[in-house]
Amino acid sequence: MSAPILSLRNLRVDFPAVHGWRALLTPRDKRHVRAIDDVSIDIMPGETLAIVGESGSGKTTLARAVNGLVPLVAGEVWFDGMALHDRPDWHSVRQRVAMMFQDPVGSLSPRKTVRDLVLEPFAIHGSKPARPEDKAVALLAAAGLGSDFLNRYPHQLSGGQARRVGVARALALTPALVLADEPTAGLDVSVQGEILNLLNRIKADHGLTTLIITHNLNILRHIADRIAVMYLGRIVEIGPVERLLSAPTHPYTRALMAANPEPDPTARRERLVLKGETPALTARPAGCEFHPRCPVARPDCATRVPVLAPSPNGGAVSCHYPLTEDIDQS
């Protein structure tokens, strides 16, 4: 087995919870909220890992921490032999680690044309292509846009077209790793298929490794090799996509999968409805952090902290009493 291309070791990210002089009056342990706590993941070359979770679970922060956009408090990030936690030369790292941001239109400068936008990575990294015009046309073509888009501005693009420009920009420097934050957010169902097909094709053509952040559970099966489920900044379950979708072992994963309404009026699947909402990061429950909402919690879940351990479905799960039966195929 080859070495992982990206390796996260016990990653931790804190955000300040109080600002200014008030911080001095706050007990040390209350000054920060822990957005990412003790996350370890290995991604193999060519693999696609999808990170799923609800708002506030730390998915986006994780991607930003990998790319150095938020500072790490503890832990290590290794990318292809480079230590990204130890003051790397971000300029050169980001030539090989590209990011696709969540908001397709908002991540494009409104005052630049599509031509300038797709050539911007070359300008930033001082590697002007020999024939910029041809390069821009080729990049757009790879993203499924014609050369008639070169002179357009972002406001003249639809959501799907802007997303394609984002893909072209991310691929401009032929990166080894792409961090895609919600690649289908804000897209209509009829367009989302095109974008996912595009990503799948590019992955196959270039042997690209991708980390996809999403809350769209319907697309997981079609884009990911493995899934990591996050809750309150921790990974609660990770495993191969088919097994995780058909036999999730963490009650949270199961509830998340079952919460997904299907476009079939005759399907009436048994549903685990969770009580309440995700607790605030400032008020993490003791023991298993999921126990107040967990439908199968037992008394000791409130006191004993679970750790990620191998699960019956071939992945790893952080639960004292993992579920074993498959989801009913209705």
């Binding site: 169902v189 009829s190 095109e194 697309i219 079609h222 088919e242 299907e262 476009p263």
Partner: peptide, 24 residues
């Protein structure tokens, strides 16, 4: 019909090409 086909939620098996509606 096309809209329902495009919803990846109804596809229970992995497909090579996700359906979409061409054009705008």
């Amino acid at each position: 019909a096309r809209l329902i086909e495009c919803d990846p939620g109804r596809l229970k098996q992995k497909v090579a090409q996700l359906p979409s509606i061409a054009g705008s």
